[in-house]
Design a protein around this nucleic acid. Structure first.
Lengths: 133, 133
DNA sequence: CTGACTGCAAACGTTTTGCACGGTA
DNA sequence: TACCGTGCAAAACGTTTGCAGTCAG
């Protein structure tokens, strides 16, 4: 199990036990919504507060340590910040998976068809995972 | 101003004045969040209830008459269902615009890199519109 | 030692519900 | 006329806040 103490400090965040637990839960699970994260945390911190979870999520999002992913017809999930990528979501079981796709054609097409300057692309591909097809 | 009476009925929805007003507001504005929609509705229906708005949104989403678009760091907006397309969002002024992009390369790449069967793609391109650059 | 973090409880904003009345088909 | 839809008020829900005590650095 990786120790995130230094990473947290580099993002101006104190390495409290609760925070370390949140981060390593995200590391292990990949993607978690608030409820699942809270449920996981309760296993090790029986008295952790939902307020603590929310406060930490905001703080870590502000400091770009984690990111929120909004998903159609599902609750948002959170993940540790990594290099840009897209998401696969299973409509049946809710599984969320990362996938790295080449966006350059899309961005070129956007530039030629609009007057927007794009700084971020969020792509969610919904369908059915291997097990649910 | 287009009359949506028949379209509503085709989707098993009675054409009430409130519902017609919601639909034509969406038609005119293109994309609206709940607050803006409610504010607009109050101009013509001074006693319309937020509960009515919510009930209608759900009903019309279930019947595929309208769709919710989830946007990073902004409130969701709603639009009349049209053929598949992506969205441009301005980080400064919040403007949401439709854009039709060719997704076939992305879908092919996804098929070759994963075991998901994709049925829907949601792409939000965030950046700066012509006026806000 | 000091400021930041935690847990609790209360507050808050948003969305949902139940119900009596009113309107569409 | 029969049912569906509306508006109101209350309830439920998820999230945020204030505060006193605790802990990391």
């Amino acid at each position: 199990m990786i120790n995130y103490t230094n990473e947290l400090r580099q993002h101006n965040l104190k390495a409290t036990p609760q925070r370390l637990a949140i981060v390593s839960a995200l590391h292990r699970a990949g993607h978690l919504n608030i409820d699942s994260l809270y449920a996981l945390m309760l296993k090790t911190f029986s008295s952790i507060s939902l307020a603590t979870i929310y406060k930490n999520m905001h703080l870590m999002i502000e400091n770009s340590f984690i990111e929120e992913i909004k998903i159609p017809e599902q609750k948002s999930v959170y993940e540790l910040t990594k290099s840009a990528h897209s998401h696969l979501v299973c409509k049946t079981c809710g599984l969320v998976e990362d996938i790295t796709l080449n966006m350059s054609d899309i961005l070129n097409e956007t530039t030629s068809k609009s007057h927007f300057v794009i700084s971020k692309t969020d792509l969610v591909l919904s369908g059915y995972c291997k097990d649910c097809q």
